[in-house]
Amino acid sequence: EVPFKVVAQFPYKSDYEDDLNFEKDQEIIVTSVEDAEWYFGEYQDSNGDVIEGIFPKSFVAVQG
């Protein structure tokens, strides 16, 4: 069931425009499960802007 919160276990950096880049310990709200390997989610950056994109499930852990 979406949405749910995950926390980055590792930093994720990608050159693909659709990917969500983040640092370790970033909290991310997952709004869609793309497939067995990928989530789609969002978070607010330090400027208060909402950043969204896809990212690999293996880089995050589900909270709770």
Rank of each mutant, 00 (worst) to 15 (best):
E42S: 13
N47A: 08
Y12W: 06
G41R: 01
G41N: 00
I28M: 04
F59A: 15
E34W: 15
G53W: 03
V62A: 09
V30N: 00
V60S: 01
Y12G: 01
S14H: 02
D49E: 10
A36M: 08
E52K: 15
S14M: 02
S14R: 05
F59T: 12
F55Y: 00
D19F: 14
F4R: 04
L20P: 01
E37D: 13
I28F: 02
V50E: 02
F22D: 00
Y12M: 03
V50A: 05
A8N: 01
V30H: 03
I51P: 00
K13H: 14
D35V: 06
K5T: 12
E52P: 02
P3A: 04
F40H: 11
D49N: 14
G53Y: 02
Q26L: 02
V60Q: 02
F40M: 08
P56Y: 05
V33Y: 09
G41C: 04
D35N: 14
E27P: 05
P11G: 09
V30R: 01
F55R: 00
V7E: 02
S32R: 15
I29M: 12
Y12P: 00
Y12V: 03
G53D: 01
D19K: 12
A8L: 04
V62L: 13
V50F: 09
E52L: 08
E52G: 09
I54C: 15
L20H: 00
S14L: 00
V2K: 06
T31R: 08
K57Y: 04
V7R: 09
V7G: 01
E27A: 07
Q44W: 07
Y16K: 15
Y16S: 14
A8Y: 01
E23F: 06
Y16W: 11
Y16G: 14
E37H: 12
A36K: 09
I29D: 04
E34G: 10
Q26W: 04
E37Y: 14
D15E: 13
A61Q: 13
K13Y: 14
G53I: 04
K57M: 09
V33W: 06
D19S: 15
V2D: 04
Y39R: 00
Q9F: 08
Y43H: 01
F55S: 02
I51M: 10
F22C: 04
G64N: 12
D25S: 07
L20D: 01
Y43K: 00
Q9P: 02
D25F: 10
D49H: 13
Y12N: 04
N21R: 07
S58E: 10
A8T: 03
Q26I: 05
I28A: 00
Y39P: 00
N47W: 07
E27H: 06
S14I: 03
Q44L: 14
D25N: 10
V60T: 05
D49S: 12
K24I: 09
P11K: 07
F40Q: 05
D19V: 12
V7S: 04
G41M: 02
F22A: 00
Q63K: 11
F40N: 03
K5S: 08
D18G: 15
F22Y: 01
Q63W: 10
G48W: 02
D18L: 14
P56R: 04
G64L: 09
D19L: 06
W38A: 03
G48C: 06
G48P: 01
V7T: 09
F55V: 01
E23I: 06
D18K: 15
V2F: 09
S32Q: 10
S58L: 07
Y39V: 02
N47V: 06
K57Q: 09
G64C: 13
G64M: 11
V30Y: 02
E42P: 00
G64Y: 09
E23Q: 08
F59I: 13
V2E: 03
K5C: 13
P56M: 03
G41A: 03
V7K: 10
E17N: 10
K57D: 04
E1Q: 12
P56F: 04
S46Q: 12
I51Q: 14
Q63M: 14
V60Y: 02
F10D: 05
